[in-house]
């Protein structure tokens, strides 16, 4: 773990963890930002914890001194000398906190306003986020396609999220890239995220949204601009035609079972559901439902009993499908790249 000794607070946190675990392998760390928005926020976290450790230290020193020095000792009798207070002291401990708070408030106000400003149109990639119980839809209005659960972004570029919800309130949080923002039904909220380096960043829902709130995970995948453009090209003109008999059979199973809710572009299907994640280029996904690695065994598990893996979600069980059909279906879906 990189140790940036930005403040006493940070030093304290890292020491605590070196003692505790040896090193940091947490993938969702607020303390290890991977983009400018989260980095600014970490600065405020460090500044505020620094000031607060100072306050805590002052209180602790007086506290420890008082508790040791003024203990009752054997032989003490009667009342100690009484006093009513001291205007001088009280002014001191009113004014010093005010100064400390001003030191904290100035950058807070500045950053609240600067982070609240959304980028001008054309300077940022715009992504429309829609939250559902318990999954995320990402729409790229510039390019006119939709994907689910995994948001792809280019590195080094601001990404302007316009967010809403189709059911209850959720909140989008990618700790390494930025703080969180609620998604409210019937309203649009906005925030900016940005990644410095290519990589996969975990995201979570942080507003209690029902039985599977804990499992409403998603990912932000950052690419270099070239790779991002390639991904966009693939998403804009997906090729979802079945390439052999097995895949053909898989496409049939899909058409018969899935397309009432899910959509799949580029395969010539007549129906297009819009209440479940879009399946276009499904083979590129790293996970199923945001929680399972994307492979054949997990696909079968998920199809047979989605309620066990993610309680309360809207996907019915497909136990009636034969193992053979599920194998065909997985073959077809996982080859959509």
């Amino acid at each position: 773990m990189m140790v940036k000794k930005k403040s006493f607070g940070y030093l304290f946190l890292t020491t605590f963890f070196v003692l505790l675990t040896g090193c940091n392998q947490g993938e969702l760390s607020v303390l290890d930002p991977k983009g400018p928005v989260a980095r600014e926020q970490l600065f405020l976290i460090n500044l505020s914890s620094g000031i607060m450790f100072f306050v805590l230290a002052v209180v602790s020193i007086i506290f420890i001194y008082v508790v040791i020095r003024y203990r009752e000792r054997p032989g003490d009798q009667g009342l100690p000398k009484q006093n009513d207070g001291s205007t001088w002291l009280e002014v001191v401990w009113t004014v010093i906190p005010i100064i400390l708070l001003i030191i904290l408030a100035v950058p807070t106000v500045k950053m609240t306003i600067s982070q609240g400003k959304m980028p001008e149109k054309g300077t940022a990639l715009e992504v429309d986020v829609t939250a559902y119980q318990y999954w995320w839809e990402f729409k790229y209005p510039e390019y006119g396609f939709v994907t689910g659960q995994e948001m792809h972004i280019p590195v080094g570029k601001k990404v302007h999220l316009k967010m809403t919800s189709k059911d209850v309130i959720h909140a989008l949080w990618v700790p390494e890239l930025a703080g969180k923002m609620d998604t409210n039904p019937g309203k649009i909220t906005e925030m900016v995220i940005q990644a410095d380096k290519p990589g996969t960043y975990k995201g979570k829902c942080t507003e209690l949204c029902g039985a599977s709130h804990a499992l409403m995970d998603f990912k932000v995948i950052a690419h270099e601009q070239d790779d991002f453009d390639k991904w966009v090209a693939k998403m804009k003109n997906p090729d979802s035609r079945a390439k052999n008999d097995i895949e053909k059979r898989g496409a049939e199973v899909l058409a018969q079972n899935c397309l009432g809710c899910h959509a799949l572009e580029g395969g010539g299907f007549a129906t297009k559901g819009d209440t479940a994640p879009d399946l276009t280029n499904y083979g590129l996904r790293t996970q199923i439902a945001g929680i399972l690695d994307n492979n054949r065994e997990n696909m079968a598990r998920w199809l047979k009993n989605p309620q066990k893996l993610k309680p309360g979600n809207r996907m019915p069980s497909f136990e009636h499908l034969s193992d053979q059909d599920i194998a065909y279906l997985s073959e077809y879906l996982l080859n959509l790249k």
Partner: peptide, 15 residues
Amino acid sequence: VMVATVPADYQFHDT
């Protein structure tokens, strides 16, 4: 006080 600093609270909130 730490959770009152708005941008930092974007990280702290609901965790």
